[in-house]
Design a protein around this nucleic acid. Structure first.
Lengths: 341, 341
DNA sequence: AAATTTTAGTTAAACGTTTAACCATATTTA
DNA sequence: TAAATATGGTTAAACGTTTAACTAAAATTT
């Protein structure tokens, strides 16, 4: 039978309280007995019962992870990686992650994730854009919550975000350093904070380098930021601006679209036009040429989110913290030094 | 404060035992009191404490889900979908899924998933190919286990599998029905039961149609079954066999490689050569022409797996069951009727 | 040396359920 | 009509922890 704390206490010749204190380091115990107890625990392969523990402490030891179906099922395993980061970190902290997905069109009538209703989680991680109706319905439950890669309306929650501005800066500066001056920014979904922040980084880099910002080199719309939109925006860009020598696309998918357009129209990459993306998706390495981009450390995003929520749970204080995860420039072959044509 | 069973009992004017019996339907209670209790539960928004329940029943209400990192992070969300199926079904059954991934090279020294060590799961779902060392180490714990999309060595576990033979049969018959006679099968990783089963289906279809099986139309190796290998095998196939009019590839990735080869070499698809794949991955629809393939109902795989494990847990009997999930033929534009060249 | 504090431990209650054993009362059977 | 059996409920123990309150012995302070 599974050993209980009682078995340990008996075998070690102490009370069960002492065993508990040893396990939880919650009271000073003499080195001698501590050792004896620990040996006994090892020898019987004892693991405390989680349910007994939760029952008395009122803590479940679980953290809920919510994201929308479509985010979870995306071809590019972005949120999957974030989840992996949280799961990994949770192992060390002794928490379990309860993952559930909701419909992207979650509404009034849909029932909340059952771990909310059951009170089976101590805290909540919410990844990616989710319907605000969910957020408002959730708020009634007063569960400590951390948002990952999404700024909820009202913005009074702790957050873990990608440093998109820094990324935009990094990407654009890379092109500037290569000697480019006619640098375009293209992106759809420009209402999304991530994409508009990247644009801010772009502008900042130009300012830093004292290169005038030219609005005719900035092509944005609110379309879904995929390859197709990249292609579409590249077309608009290049039919009006022959002089452009480099393009910073709001994300890799659109960068691929841009490359597609350029190839179709006889431009050589990077000889004629340099292209840089953002995200570092898996497809990048398959491209010809491989795409220079900004790497987003997804696993780390998850790790940080878990640390933050655990911190929140331990210190009870509703730290109103905002963690920005730095990104890296990954130089591959789609960018090269400017050469006059 | 969170209401307890006691609050319900008090408010409804019965004992806590009665409340418990009503909730669990484990003893006959008069319609009248039953109603009163249920009303009270609703009105106080009462949910039984999971930990208290586990403590006394010895059941955790959790099911572990194990897969390797690389499977979880695959670009094609195959296992992610399976997981979603289990999670979805688990909601209905009142179980929680604890997902954890292990390294593909899991070995003696790696520690087992902590939900095993902690005994925090009642049952186990294992998806995809995993190291046999894990299986043997797991067996010591005697946890009811169901394997999904993988036949463990020894094969004495309940399984939920894709009906690959039927799929192979379906794919090949489709080509036969279109009038093709020179039908090739190509695939890497031929040691993998899924891929070899598909080959069996292929052969069976030919036999059924009384078309001789010709080994020079079957090109297999043990390479990783990706696009590149599809391209490679197509090259070998077509340099030796000009008369081939249709190709059944062991999976969609390789089918894409085949299409790539054909296009590069001036074959028109499907006019000159019909191509059919297997899996129905997301990329298929993006192709030109869209790929005819065999759809694998991934979510359903997960649903069935969960049902099976729950059954196992309820009936205690180690049902040695093997569930085959049927697949569907999805006809798109990469296959067409045979026309003599 | 007496009084106080510290240290290292024990005792026992509490957490919120399930469930075996029990007990009335009403119903059926002999 | 008395005895046996259903019916619908109650009581209380048990599950395995944590932790407040307590105690005895040792160390420190006065």
């Amino acid at each position: 039978m599974k050993p209980t704390i009682k078995d340990i206490a008996n075998k070690a010749g102490v009370s069960i309280a002492t065993v508990s204190y040893v396990i939880n380091k919650t009271k000073p115990i003499s080195a001698e007995t501590k050792n004896r107890v620990q040996k006994t625990i090892k020898s019987l392969n004892y693991h405390p019962s989680k349910s007994a523990r939760s029952l008395v402490t009122g803590k479940t030891g679980n953290i809920g992870f919510i994201l929308t179906d479509d985010h979870f099922l995306r071809t590019e395993p972005f949120y999957t990686r974030i989840f992996l980061g949280t799961e990994f970190e949770a192992r060390g902290e002794g928490y379990y992650i309860l993952l559930t997905s909701i419909k992207p069109d979650f509404n009034e009538k849909d029932s909340l994730p059952r771990f909310i209703l059951n009170k089976s989680v101590d805290g909540l991680l919410i990844a990616g854009k989710i319907p605000s109706i969910l957020i408002s319905r959730l708020s009634a439950y007063n569960i400590p919550t951390v948002f990952v890669d999404f700024i909820p309306p009202g913005n009074n929650y702790p957050l873990v975000l990608i440093d998109n501005i820094q990324g935009g800066l990094l990407a654009t500066s890379h092109l500037i350093n290569l000697g480019h001056r006619n640098i375009a920014y293209i992106s759809g979904d420009i209402d999304h904070p991530s994409l508009s922040d990247r644009l801010s980084g772009y502008k900042q880099a130009l300012e830093n380098a004292k290169i005038p910002i030219r609005n005719n080199l900035i092509f944005t719309n609110t379309n879904y930021p995929d390859r197709q939109n990249g292609f579409y925006l590249a077309k608009k860009l290049f039919t009006n601006n022959k002089e452009v020598t480099s393009v910073f696309a709001g994300n890799d998918a659109q960068a691929i679209g841009v490359m597609h357009y350029l190839k179709d129209n006889g431009y050589k990459i990077p000889k004629d036009v340099s292209v840089i993306g953002f995200d570092d998706i898996e497809a990048d390495l398959m491209l010809d040429p491989p795409l220079t981009t900004i790497r987003v450390p997804k696993v780390e995003l998850g790790v940080e989110a878990l640390r933050l929520i655990v911190n929140l749970l331990k210190n009870k204080k509703s730290i109103h913290k905002k963690i920005l995860i730095p990104v890296d420039l990954i130089i591959r072959n789609s960018t090269s030094a400017y050469k006059p044509r």
